[in-house]
């Protein structure tokens, strides 16, 4: 994953993780969790790392680690600190609230298990940081409302007042309904992992990102051929639109709902090109 920023993992206790895990319950051992801290919105001067030491047990998730820290917020050096703040709701991988950078990669803390992560780095330590492309509110909590601003820019909603009067006979809806994948797959859960992982999204870039293009595509499909759909395509062709996608595929790699984000972007790009040619020929 070239586009995802990777922090240097914390050194942690010097043990061989693979053999420690193989011994499983035989021996008690502990590991370290480094947590990025910030006391309040825009309070960048309070940014720091706190390191906690936790006893290992099998099947721990990152969320479990944060709960254990919350119970007894004492650093590895024995200093009592404010418990780290993080968002969590369903704790079963459905809601996306707890998306954060775990060892530099956007993941959902509740379904990310500690053991495979430590095996990957062979270090008895983890590093937790807030998503880097959103303003930090406190510790691991970020304000993801810029993702909604992107959805506003591409008008990712169905405009009921511009619908034909009898919706059940709309040909586009019938087409969508007959697609075998229609209701089976998960829709976007709004976790913003795709935006975090996107190399084109950085300070100063206008790119709306994969999630909003995907949502806009769904709305375009539903209202195909209508003026509302055309306006949406125009928005997607403009600055920050589909043309800015660098096709890194990072979004597809990190999406917890396995959305076909690359296909959505390609499909919108095709429709946009078609519309561009249509307009060009109409003018001549």
């Amino acid at each position: 994953m070239s586009g995802v920023r990777r922090e240097q993992p914390a050194p942690g206790p010097a043990i061989d993780v693979a053999s420690a895990l193989a011994r499983a319950d035989e021996q008690k051992w502990s590991f370290r969790v480094r947590v990025r801290r910030q006391d309040g919105p825009a309070d960048t001067r309070s940014r720091r790392w706190d390191e906690f030491e936790l006893p290992w047990r099998p099947g721990l998730s990152v969320h479990d680690c944060l709960e254990a820290i919350e119970r007894d917020p004492r650093t590895a050096r024995g200093e009592r600190v404010r418990a780290p703040a993080w968002d969590a709701s369903c704790v079963e991988g459905r809601c996306g609230a707890c998306t954060m950078l775990v060892n530099g990669r956007p993941r959902q803390a509740c379904v990310t298990l500690v053991d495979p992560l430590m095996l990957e780095t062979n270090a008895a330590s983890l590093e937790l940081a807030p998503l880097s492309k959103f303003p930090v509110l406190r510790d691991l909590v970020v304000d993801r409302s810029s993702a909604r601003a992107a959805l506003r820019r591409v008008k990712a909603w169905v405009e009921l007042d511009r619908e034909p009067a009898e919706p059940s006979v709309t040909p586009s809806r019938r087409r969508l309904a007959l697609a075998p994948t229609a209701g089976a797959s998960s829709p976007c859960i709004g976790c913003a992992a795709c935006l975090e992982a996107c190399p084109e999204l950085h300070a100063g870039s206008l790119f709306v990102g994969a999630a909003s293009i995907h949502e806009a595509k769904l709305a375009v499909d539903l209202q195909a051929g209508s003026p509302a759909a055309d306006e949406r395509l125009d928005a997607l062709m403009g600055p920050g639109g589909v043309a800015e996608c660098g096709k890194s595929q990072n979004c597809v790699e990190v999406c917890p709902a396995s959305l076909p984000l690359d296909e959505s972007i390609a499909s919108v790009a095709r429709a946009a090109t078609k519309r561009l040619f249509g307009r060009w020929f109409a003018r001549r």
Binding site: W157, S186, E215
Partner: peptide, 24 residues
């Protein structure tokens, strides 16, 4: 009626999208 096993997700998604207009 169901949208697979994601009915709640789908309806929150579309209602939330409708509210985007009011924010502007």
């Amino acid at each position: 009626v169901h949208a697979g096993v994601h009915t709640g997700r789908q309806l929150v998604r579309v209602l939330d999208a409708q509210l985007l207009r009011f924010e502007e």
